[in-house]
Amino acid sequence: MPMKETQDATNLTELIHTMERMERENAQVSVDDVVHAVGRRSFGPLLLLAGLITLAPIIGDIPGMPTLMAVLVLLTSSQLLVGRETFWLPKWLLKRSLSRQKFDKALHYMQKPAKWVDGLLGVRLAWMTGYIGIRVTAFACLLVALAMPPMEFIPFSANGAGLALTLFGLGLVARDGLMLALGFLLTGVTFTVVVMSLI
């Protein structure tokens, strides 16, 4: 049976609302809390989440956060490619956390742009979000994840990777093949910039 790639959330605003409804008993928000909220079978939302965290100034600027998100994307992408239906993540990754205050502030920061982004989404080139398209996307995300750790030392390149992951996540969540196409294009541009910076 193919892995389920869609959750109740069909756009960015709905994903943010899903995270806002998380339990608020603790002062910290762990990776496990977020993964539990979006679902362990949800490749699109997890990609979108990793991209947004990498992009968000409040969270993404925390040292090591892009690398942490790269590990999350690397593990989920590779497991999707080998056919797993539920993602396994190590305890050390699930236990990583940040303050509830920073998490809530980041969600609030993303609400207005989310409404604008959702207005751009539509079911287009839906064949790109099918079985083969999802796995091609997973392979591209795996390459992005492998490149993200050194990107922390190249100005703005991690932002390009975060935006590419966000586009991939949006494309899968909304079944918008155009967003996937833009993600592939941005991935190519980002890799070109990184290679040129290293030469």
Rank of each mutant, 00 (worst) to 15 (best):
F168S: 01
L146R: 06
T86F: 09
L52T: 06
I132G: 07
R175P: 06
P155F: 03
A161S: 02
L80I: 04
A37P: 02
G160P: 04
V123N: 15
L163M: 08
G177I: 06
Q101V: 14
W88F: 09
A106Y: 11
G44R: 03
P150S: 08
F168P: 05
L94F: 01
W116K: 13
G44Q: 03
L52Q: 06
E23H: 11
A114H: 01
A37S: 09
G183M: 09
A140T: 04
A106K: 05
F168I: 10
L180T: 01
T76W: 06
T166P: 00
D176W: 07
G169T: 05
F168M: 09
T166E: 02
G177T: 07
L48I: 09
L180R: 04
A50H: 02
M148Q: 02
E20Q: 12
E25C: 12
L94Q: 08
G64R: 13
L15Y: 15
T129C: 02
L143K: 13
R40F: 09
M3D: 03
T13N: 10
A161K: 01
M19E: 14
D118H: 15
M148F: 09
M179R: 05
M19H: 03
L94G: 09
R96V: 11
Q79R: 07
M22N: 10
P2Q: 07
V29H: 02
L68F: 11
W92A: 15
D104F: 06
R100I: 06
V73G: 02
G51A: 10
G171S: 00
G51R: 08
Y131M: 14
L180S: 05
S78M: 13
I59N: 00
S197L: 06
A161L: 03
I134E: 01
D104A: 11
L55F: 14
L75G: 00
D8F: 10
Q28S: 15
T190I: 12
V82E: 13
N26R: 14
A9H: 10
F43Q: 03
A37I: 05
F191K: 07
P57W: 12
V29P: 04
M22Q: 05
S97C: 07
F87L: 01
A138Y: 04
T76R: 05
A158R: 05
L89N: 03
A158N: 07
V31S: 00
L93M: 11
S78L: 14
G177V: 05
Q79V: 12
L68V: 12
L198R: 13
G64Y: 14
T18W: 11
P2R: 10
R96E: 05
D176S: 09
L89T: 02
Q79K: 07
T190S: 02
L121G: 04
S197H: 11
P149N: 03
W116E: 15
L48A: 01
I16G: 03
Q101S: 15
A181V: 08
S30C: 10
L125Y: 08
T10C: 03
L81N: 08
M110N: 04
K4H: 14
D104C: 12
E23C: 12
S78R: 12
A27F: 14
G39A: 04
V136K: 07
F43L: 04
D8C: 10
A138T: 01
G130I: 11
T18L: 09
A158Q: 01
P113S: 00
G133V: 01
D118N: 04
A37N: 04
P150M: 07
D33L: 00
M65S: 08
G119S: 06
L52P: 00
I154H: 05
